[in-house]
Every structure is written in structure tokens, then in C-alpha cells.
Amino acid sequence: MQESLRNDEELLRQSVIELMDVDIFYGTYKAVKEVNLNIPKNKITAFIGPSGCGKSTILRCLNRLNDLISSFKLKGRVTYHGQDLYAKDIDPVEVRKRIGMVFQRPNPFPKTIYDNVAYGARVNGYKGDLDELVETSLRRAALWDEVKDKLGESGFSLSGGQQQRLCIARTVAAQPEVVLMDEPCSALDPISTLKIEELMQELKENYTIVIVTHNMQQATRVADMTAFFNAEAVGNKGNKVGYLVEFDQTEKIFSNPEEQSTKDYVSGRFG
């Protein structure tokens, strides 16, 4: 890795995370190529695209969750406030404290609701009032009223939509700056989905949100910016490599995209 470069002040103010010429490999297999992307602060950025285009892979490399896969390799630069996330002296644990993640399926810990929310704060050595933090986090996740009388019950006692909001509360309680969401509503019913989308609108006041979604309506409903990814076949073994086609205001992507393939995808012609 090269030494950290100082970035343009203006750019720094606008974007929290920047990807520069990012290539992602699993072993020798190239999964994603040449992604350049700036994720703006306090906005919701959606990643859309057909299956296998590397949206989730890119999302996970933003908080180094791909480190768990031993064959994972990243070329190029991913910076967070100008700091190279993949520099040698960066502690992935510190990265994940600042860049939280909500997963596709609700995955509460086998603990009480309270302990679920308090977990992030506890492992991060939170010094303040834990009760208060749990309450504000649950309120932010629009779950407080539903669970305030049963904080001691297991997180599994909640419905799927509530569990996902619990996971959001858990992420919020760890006090990150960026929240990554990997198809957070794909396992939920429409009403729960709507609740989570409303929640995201409220959360973006304080957080920068990046969401991967298969649901284009969802992207139009929630996202300020949308990145469309596509995949192309390479070689003759059926391998596909994902790349960024277009990144712009959501409105523009869905109404008047620059690229033909974006147009085809958002109008439902493929994918």
C-alpha cells in the first residue's frame, strides 16, 4: 500500500468514503474492477444492479468485513475521511466501530433486547449512561414503544421486522458515522419495509447511509444518490466481473441515465 495522500479539502467535506480504482479479487478470480465512487456525507447512497455484480462485495469492503474471507484481496484505494482503510497500520476493528453494518437477514444475538443494543457500546468501552444510550438507540430505530416493557426478553421474541429494527438500533448504539445496509428489507414484509425506509430518512440526519438493494422502487424511495453496477463475462468459464456503470442523483439514474444499460436495467428490461 502506498502512503496516505492528502485529498482536496472540498472533496473531503462532501464525501465520507471514496473508492479509487478499486479492484477486488477472490484468490486469482477478479470479482470487481475499477470502481471509482465518492459516498457523500449525510446522504443515502443506494447500490443497485443485477445479482453477481459485486454490490455486496463492495459494500463489505467499506468496513473491511471481507477480511474474514482469506482469499479476499483489494487493489486500489478505499479512503475514509482521506485515510486509506487498507493501509497496513489501520486496525479493522477501529474501522468497523466507525462504519457499522446492518445485514440482509435480521441477526440479533441470542441475548436480551437490552444486551443486544448495549453490545456495541460495551465492546467499545462506552463510558456514559448505558440505559440512556439503549433508549435513544431504540427510539432512533422506532422500536422503543414496542419493546420498552420487555427489554429483558430475548431478541428472538420479536417479529422479523422488529428484529431488523433491533439490529439497526444495535448498529446505531455503537455510534458509527456510516451505516452500511446490505439489502436490509429483503427478508421483511411490506409494512416492516416501509418502517425501515422511514427510519433511514430520519437516520440520515446523523449518519451517512449506504444501502444495497434489489428493489428499485426502494432505491427511488429512499436514496439520494444511486450507483448502478453491472457484470460482464470474462474468459470462457462463465466468470463474471462487476463494474460501476453509472453513479449519479437517484432521480437522474431512474429518469434520464447516461448509459443505455442503466436505462435497460431501471426500466426492467434485464436483471
Partner: peptide
Amino acid sequence: LRQASLGLGA
């Protein structure tokens, strides 16, 4: 479970 915990900075 593991990913959720690591994702929270544990």
C-alpha cells in the same frame, strides 16, 4: 452472528 459482532467493532 460472527459478522454482526465484528461489524459492531468487536
